[in-house]
Design a protein around this nucleic acid. Sequence first.
DNA 1: CAATCGTATACAGTATACAAACAACCGACC
DNA 2: GGTCGGTTGTTTGTATACTGTATACGATTG
Lengths: 243, 243
Amino acid sequence: MPLTEVQPVKTRTFSEEVAERLREAIRNGSLGAGSRLVEQEVAEQLGVSRVPVREAIQMLVEEGMVRKAPHRGAYVYLPTAYEIEEISSLRVVLECFVVERVIQNWNRAHEERLRSIVAAMRAGMQGGDPQRIYEQDYAFHYALWEIAHHSLLLEVVSGLRSRLSRFLYEANSALSQEGASRHVDSHDEFIDVLKSGDVATAQQEIAIHILSAKTRILTHCQLAPVQSPAPPPTGPVAAESVR
Amino acid sequence: MPLTEVQPVKTRTFSEEVAERLREAIRNGSLGAGSRLVEQEVAEQLGVSRVPVREAIQMLVEEGMVRKAPHRGAYVYLPTAYEIEEISSLRVVLECFVVERVIQNWNRAHEERLRSIVAAMRAGMQGGDPQRIYEQDYAFHYALWEIAHHSLLLEVVSGLRSRLSRFLYEANSALSQEGASRHVDSHDEFIDVLKSGDVATAQQEIAIHILSAKTRILTHCQLAPVQSPAPPPTGPVAAESVR
DNA sequence: CAATCGTATACAGTATACAAACAACCGACC
DNA sequence: GGTCGGTTGTTTGTATACTGTATACGATTG
């Protein structure tokens, strides 16, 4: 018996689960910038022991959302405007590389996949569902990364984007109706460019896409005022309500 | 009191210490590809408990030296030739970006710093010290990354290079006398190009540098034979002598 | 004899307990 | 009054014990 349609049981560890909760809490703002992540507190709130919490925090450190120093603990990190610039400039370089490879690998199936994502995005827009737009925007990029067929590139560039996720969500929510509409349309136009095989134009397009996202973040989101060389926030900022 | 030149006392945790030992063991081959890293065993051999070992292994996973699957443990990973290609192609893209920024920021002090590194490299070559050549080669790149003044770029590109470190050391050791000499000279010539401000040429040079390193690795080092979708090596490959 | 299931064993995942380190506070001494 | 030094509390770092899962091997049945 082949037993198709049967998915393997997802075996997520507590660590991953905790990391997901913390990511969510940071993204939606209930864990604001500077909040200290005290292992004991988080563990009690989520009903697990400190070990999974430690590992979860470590994951967030890798992802750039949290910083920590030995014996001094972890806290939610707020990037500076300069760091947003850094991330975006790297994204431009890497996404241009992605585009180059996508065009090399281009085929009909890829086009359909991308078109359907844009369709879902448009549906979300018409339904007034910013969350869905955000998700489909991510799906679009993720599809491009996969089409590029370069697993390491995917890892790096998706990691970069995840560093912006909490701001992108916020900034895109503030998009006007016409703005969102133009945003969605630009994706369809971008597919046309990919299809035409014009690498230079496609790279220019995606660079504009990334830089406009950066601009939206810089104008709509609160960021750290200056370069912050001081590691920990001195004040005991309460880390309330993780779930 | 400004107290420049004073570095904070580095308070290394056991985790970092263990990670360093494991890295070294992998680099010098005493932990060969496919060796399983059993937490209990490593902990006993190094005289610490399992917790620091877990964290150390996690670090190596981030660095790409080790893979792990839930409930199945960790093992030393041997990249495929394709993955070496992936790493190198990304390095080309990123180092070209580095070069662009280095030229933008170029000044006299930077030139002197790079020249002195090449001088040390040449000394190591004449002294027949391949270890030193390797170190100075790293120092050269690290200096470039710093001059680019882009901390995230530094993080990403240095991480990429660390994935190659164990192979670069091996491949560069096999360099002939004249080969090493040409290698060193090429660094001085590269500084000249940077000084001239010719971005395109500098990018071409560094691309050649990276791709020749790749070729050396592919020809001199043993790599995984095929794409390895099978995560763990089934056989209980003994993990002998970590220290 | 083959295929499948049960059972044992090994090891990662998790919980709890203890020790060490940092930071803040407070008192003493210049 | 300010600085130095001890003292205490909080929090991380580490050790140990326990639980759950995966794999292998042997038992059982057709």
